[in-house]
Design a protein around this nucleic acid. Structure first.
Length: 878
RNA sequence: GGGCGCAUAGCUCAGCGGAAGAGCACUCGGUUUACACCCGAGCGGUCGCAGGUUCGAAUCCUGCUGCGCCCA
C-alpha cells in the first residue's frame, strides 16, 4: 500500500545564489591544481592556446562567448581523460598600449620624447603592472579553467626570443626585406599600418575637377584629395584614348606651383572613369606610385608624418584638412576649377586603433614576403591537416591567404619588439640572432622601429610552449587541438598563426581545428556599439544572473556560422534554467535520490524508469556528437529540453508516484533519480560549471565534477514498448488536463473519474500515475459522471468519465471537438488527394505510401469517433 | 566595383526533398506539499516575391527584391 513519502532535510540552500559561491568555487579549483597541465602525463593531450587578448582590454561579450566555448571544450576533454592545457596570456598591443600611456603622460604635460625611449618603455611596464590585464581577473569570474602557471605575455623574455629567432630565420631565408613603398600611415599614431589595420567606410567628401594647362592643351583631372596636387609629377591617360593621344609626351603647367609635368600614357588608367585623365602623385597614392615607377617619375612628398603640408609656399604648415579647402580656393581664384561635387561619397580608410583617416605615404619599411608562407598556410587547410569549422568559412580563408599582399611589419613605435637589425657606418645591414652580439663600434646603430604586434602573436602557439627550445611542453602539447575565435579575426589570428606556425614549426600545423564563432549583436540583430548605446556588458550579467546563466546564454546562441542576437531576457531565461535545475535537484535529494546504490536490473524497473534511462542514453550520445561538431546551440537545447521537459515535467512527477509506493520500488526510483541527475550534471558541467558542481557534490559526495568522468552511453537496447506506454500516459494526462481547462476546472481541484479501456491500451500499471498527474480521484459511492472524453491511443481508446458535480460547458466541448474534427478532416483530405494520384502511388517509395495510408486510416477513424462524440452531446449550449 | 551570406510565428533562431519547430513575448487558469526565476492549458506561420525541376519543395535550380558582411 502507499505510504506518505517523507521529505528528507538536505544541506542545499533553498535558492541558487551564484554571487555568493562562484568566486570561492573557482579558487578551490585553481588551488586543487585541476587546471594545471602535466607535460609528463601519459594521457592524450588536448591543447588550446587562448588567442591573447589585448593588455589594455577588458572583457566584452565577444570574449565571453569565445571563452565559454574554449572552457566548455577543455572541461569536457578533461572529464574524458585528456591531459588538458588551456594556456592564457595577453599580447602587448603596440599601438593601443603606447596610446594609453602617451595619454597618461599628456595629462602630466610631458611627451614620450621628453622622457626618451628607455624611460618611456619603463613607464609602459609600470602601467602594465598597475592597470594592464584587467581581463585576466574577469576571466576568473567567468570560470575559465586556464593553467595560470603557464600564463604568458608577448613581451616576456622567452617570447621575445622566439620573435627574434623567427625574424632572423626569415631574414636569412630572404623572406624579410626593406623597401620604400606607399604604406598606410596613421598621422595621429605616426606609424605605418598593415592592410588589415585599416578599416574602410563610405564617407562624405568632395570631388573637385581641376583643369591643368590651357586652350587646346588643357586636360581636366578629378580628385578627392586636392591638396595632393602639390605633389603631382604627371598626368596619365590611357594609351588608346583618342581624346588625349595628341597630348601624350607633352607637358602641362601644374597650377599653383609653376612646375611643368609630363602627360604619360598608362594601360592602368580607366578611360571610362571621369574625364579619363588622372593626376599622378607617386608619393601619396599606391596606384600613382606604380604609374610613377613605370614611367620613372619623381616622387614629391608634400606632407610630414603628421599630415602637415611641407611644400614651401602659402600652404606650408597647414594640416591636410585645412590645406584641402585652401588649395581648392586658390585653384578657384586661378580659374582652374571646372566642377565641384559635394558631398561626394567615397570609400575612406581609417586607422583601426584611433579612427584617424589614413594617409597613403611613401615610406621605407620592413616587409615580409608572404607568398611562400601564405601558400603553406592555405595548403594545410586544403589537405585537411587543419580543419575549419564551420567548413563554409574555409573559402573565406583561402580567398585571403591566396591573395595576400606582402606584410609591412615595422612600426614607428617604441613599445614592442625592436627590429634586430643594425646599420653600419658603411651602409652595412646586419640582422642579429638571439644569441649573437650586435656589432659595436663607431657608427653602428640599431633600427629604431619595432615589429607589428601580430608578428609576435603569430608565433603564440609555439612561443608560449617554449619554442625555439625543445621543451617538454612543446613536445607534449604542440600542435594545439583547437583555435577558437570569431570569424572576424580569421585574418588576424588564424592566418598569421598558420603562416608562422608552419614556417617555424617545420611544417607542423599550429592547430588541428579552427572553430569560428559568430559575432554578438543586440536583440534586433544590430551591431553593438557605444554610439548606438546597445552594448551589453558581460560583467553586468555575471553580477545579476551569474556565470552559468551568462555562459549558457552565449553557448545556446552559438549556431555555426551565424551571428547571435542577445538581450537580457535571454540571460534571464538561462538563469531560470539554472534555478530549475537547482530545484529539481533539491527535490530529488529530499526524496532520497542517490548514486550510492546502483540502478537495479532493467527487468525490475518500471516503464517510466526505462523510458527516462533510454532517453538519457540518447542524450549522452547526442551531446557527444554535438560537442565533436562544435554545435553548441543544439547541445544546449538538447540538455535544456531533456532537463526541463523530460526529467522535470514528467519523470519527477512519475517518480513521486513510484516513491509513494514505498519499499523496493521507492529504492529503485531513488537510484534512477540519482543516476539520471548525476549524468545530466556531468553533461551540463562544461557549460554551467558552478551550479552543477555544487549540486553534484551534494548528490554524490564526490571531490569535484571538474575531474569526474564524462558519461558514456549505457548501450542497453531501448525499450520501445515502455516508451510507447509512457507516451500513452502523457497523451492521456494531457487530454484530461486539456478537457479540464476547457471546462474551467481549477488546476488544483481533484475530480473524481472513472477510466475504462485502460487494460486494452496496455496502461493498467499506470492508473496511479494518470490519477496523480491529471489530479483525479477514484470514483466513490456517489459517482455521477457528467462528462466524458475519449483518448485514442496505440493499443485502443481510453474513455474517461468525469464527475464535474455541476453544469457542463457543452459549448466549450463542442468547440474543442469541432476544432479536432477540422484538423482530422484536413488531414484526411490531404492523404486522399495523394493516394488518389497514381503518379504518387507509382513513383513514391513504398514506405512513404504506406505511411500516408496509415495516416488516412487514422484520420478517418478520428473523424468517425469525433462525430459520434458530437452527436452524443446534449443539444444547445451555444 | 568584386565576392559571400541571410530572408520561416510579434522577436531571436532551428529545420534544408516526404505530416511547419524551439526559446522569449502574448492570452486564460492556478498558494498542486522541488520550483511563481514556477505549474497547467492555449493563441500565433499562403516558410520574402516570381518562375522552374519533382509524384511531392520551407528544403533543389534560376531570376527579382530587401537586408547584412568581407574585400577593393
Amino acid at each position: 500500500m502507499t505510504e506518505t513519502p517523507t521529505l528528507r532535510s538536505i544541506d542545499l540552500p533553498p535558492a541558487w545564489e551564484p554571487a555568493t559561491v562562484e568566486a570561492e568555487l573557482y579558487r578551490g579549483w585553481v588551488d586543487a591544481g585541476y587546471f594545471t597541465a602535466d607535460a609528463s602525463s601519459d594521457k592524450p593531450p588536448f591543447t588550446i592556446v587562448l588567442p591573447p587578448p589585448n593588455v589594455t582590454g577588458s572583457l566584452h561579450m565577444g570574449h565571453a562567448l569565445n571563452h565559454t566555448v574554449m572552457d566548455a571544450l577543455t572541461r569536457r576533454r578533461r572529464m574524458q581523460g585528456y591531459e588538458v592545457l588551456w594556456l592564457p596570456g595577453m599580447d602587448h598591443a603596440g599601438i593601443a598600449t603606447q596610446n594609453v600611456v602617451e595619454r597618461q603622460l599628456a595629462g602630466e604635460g610631458v611627451s614620450r620624447h621628453d622622457l626618451g625611449r628607455e624611460k618611456f618603455v619603463e613607464r609602459v611596464w609600470e602601467w602594465k603592472a598597475e592597470y594592464g590585464g584587467k581581463i585576466l581577473d574577469q576571466m576568473k569570474r567567468l570560470g575559465d579553467g586556464v593553467d595560470w602557471s603557464r600564463e604568458r605575455f608577448t613581451m616576456d623574455e622567452g617570447l621575445s626570443r622566439a620573435v627574434q629567432t623567427v625574424f632572423k630565420r626569415l631574414f636569412d631565408d630572404g623572406l624579410i626585406y626593406r623597401a620604400e613603398r606607399i604604406i598606410n600611415w596613421c598621422p595621429r599614431c605616426r606609424t605605418a599600418l598593415s592592410d588589415i589595420e585599416v578599416e574602410h567606410s563610405d564617407d562624405d567628401g568632395e570631388l573637385v575637377s581641376i583643369r591643368y594647362g590651357d586652350g587646346a592643351d588643357a586636360i581636366v583631372v578629378a580628385t578627392t584629395r586636392a591638396e595632393t596636387m602639390l605633389g603631382d609629377t604627371a598626368v596619365a591617360v590611357h594609351p588608346d584614348d583618342e581624346r588625349y593621344r595628341h597630348l601624350v609626351g607633352t607637358e602641362v603647367e601644374l597650377p599653383l606651383t609653376g612646375r611643368r609635368i609630363p602627360i604619360v600614357a598608362d594601360e592602368h588608367v580607366d578611360p571610362a572613369f571621369g574625364t579619363g585623365a588622372v593626376k599622378v602623385t607617386p608619393a601619396h597614392d599606391p596606384n600613382d606610385f606604380e604609374i610613377g615607377r613605370r614611367h620613372d617619375l619623381p616622387s614629391i612628398t608634400v606632407m610630414d608624418d603628421s599630415a602637415v603640408i611641407t611644400t614651401p609656399g602659402p600652404f606650408q604648415g597647414l594640416d591636410r584638412f585645412e590645406a584641402r579647402p585652401a588649395v581648392v580656393a586658390a585653384l578657384r581664384e586661378a580659374g582652374r576649377i571646372v566642377a565641384e561635387k559635394r558631398p561626394y561619397v567615397h570609400s575612406v580608410g581609417h586607422c583601426s586603433r584611433c579612427d584617424t583617416v589614413v594617409e597613403p605615404r611613401l615610406s621605407l619599411q620592413w616587409w615580409v614576403n608572404v607568398e611562400p608562407l601564405a601558400r603553406a598556410a592555405g595548403d594545410a587547410v586544403r589537405d585537411g591537416r587543419t580543419q575549419v569549422h564551420p567548413p563554409e568559412l574555409a573559402k573565406r580563408y583561402f580567398d585571403w591567404v591566396d591573395n595576400m599582399h606582402d606584410w609591412t611589419i615595422s612600426r614607428q613605435l617604441w613599445w614592442g619588439h625592436r627590429i634586430p637589425v643594425w646599420y653600419g657606418p658603411d651602409d652595412q645591414v646586419v640582422c642579429v640572432g638571439p644569441d649573437e652580439q650586435p656589432p659595436t663600434g663607431e657608427g653602428w646603430r640599431q633600427d629604431p622601429d619595432v615589429l607589428d604586434t601580430w608578428f609576435s602573436s603569430g608565433l603564440w602557439p609555439l612561443s608560449t610552449l617554449g619554442w625555439p627550445d625543445k621543451t617538454p611542453d612543446l613536445a607534449k602539447f604542440y600542435p594545439t587541438s583547437v583555435l577558437s575565435t570569431g570569424y572576424d579575426i580569421l585574418f588576424f589570428w588564424v592566418a598569421r598563426m598558420m603562416m608562422f606556425g608552419l614556417y617555424a614549426g617545420e611544417d607542423v600545423q599550429p592547430f588541428d581545428h579552427v572553430y569560428l564563432h559568430g559575432l554578438i549583436r543586440d536583440a534586433q540583430g544590430k551591431k553593438m556599439s557605444k554610439s548606438r548605446g546597445n552594448v551589453l556588458d558581460p560583467l553586468d550579467w555575471l553580477d545579476r544572473f551569474g556565470a552559468d546563466a551568462t555562459r549558457f546564454t552565449l553557448a545556446r546562441g552559438a549556431n555555426p556560422g551565424s551571428d547571435m542576437a542577445l538581450a537580457e531576457e535571454w540571460a534571464a531565461g538561462s538563469r531560470n534554467f539554472c534555478t530549475k535545475l537547482w530545484n529539481a535537484s533539491r527535490f530529488a535529494l529530499m526524496n532520497g535520490a542517490t548514486t550510492a546504490t546502483a540502478v537495479p536490473d532493467r527487468a525490475t524497473l518500471t516503464d517510466a524508469d526505462r523510458w527516462i534511462l533510454d532517453s538519457l542514453d540518447t542524450l549522452v550520445s547526442d551531446v557527444d556528437t554535438l560537442f565533436d561538431g562544435f554545435q553548441f546551440a543544439k547541445l544546449c537545447d538538447a540538455l535544456y529540453h531533456f532537463t526541463w521537459d523530460l526529467y522535470c515535467d514528467w519523470y519527477l512527477e512519475l517518480a513521486k508516484v513510484q516513491i509513494a509506493e514505498g519499499g523496493e520500488r521507492a529504492d529503485a526510483t531513488r537510484a534512477v533519480l540519482g543516476h539520471v541527475l548525476d549524468t545530466v550534471l556531468r553533461l551540463l558541467h562544461p557549460v554551467t560549471p558552478f551550479v552543477t558542481e555544487v549540486l553534484w557534490k551534494s548528490l554524490t559526495g564526490g571531490e569535484s565534477l571538474v575531474v569526474a568522468d564524462w558519461p558514456k552511453p549505457a548501450g542497453a537496447a531501448a525499450d520501445a514498448a515502455a516508451a510507447q506506454r509512457v507516451e500513452g500516459v502523457q497523451r492521456l494526462v494531457t487530454e484530461i488536463r486539456r478537457f479540464r481547462a476547457d471546462q474551467g476546472v481549477k488546476p488544483g481541484q481533484r475530480v473524481s473519474a472513472r477510466l475504462s479501456g485502460v487494460d486494452a491500451a496496455g496502461l493498467s500499471a499506470h492508473t496511479a500515475a494518470v490519477t496523480a498527474l491529471a489530479r483525479l480521484t477514484a470514483p466513490g459511492e456517489a459517482f455521477a459522471p457528467s462528462a466524458a472524453l475519449e483518448v485514442p491511443l496505440a493499443g485502443g481508446a481510453v474513455t474517461v468519465e468525469l464527475d464535474l458535480s455541476g453544469t457542463v460547458d457543452v459549448a466549450a466541448e463542442r468547440k474543442r471537438l469541432g476544432k479536432d474534427l477540422s484538423v482530422a478532416e484536413k488531414e484526411l483530405a490531404q492523404c486522399e488527394a495523394k493516394l488518389g494520384n497514381p503518379k504518387f502511388t507509382d513513383k513514391a517509395p513504398a514506405d512513404v505510401v504506406d505511411k500516408i495510408r496509415a495516416r488516412r486510416d487514422t484520420a478517418a477513424a478520428e473523424i468517425t469517433r469525433i462525430r459520434g462524440r458530437l452527436d452524443a452531446l446534449p443539444a444547445g449550449g451555444e
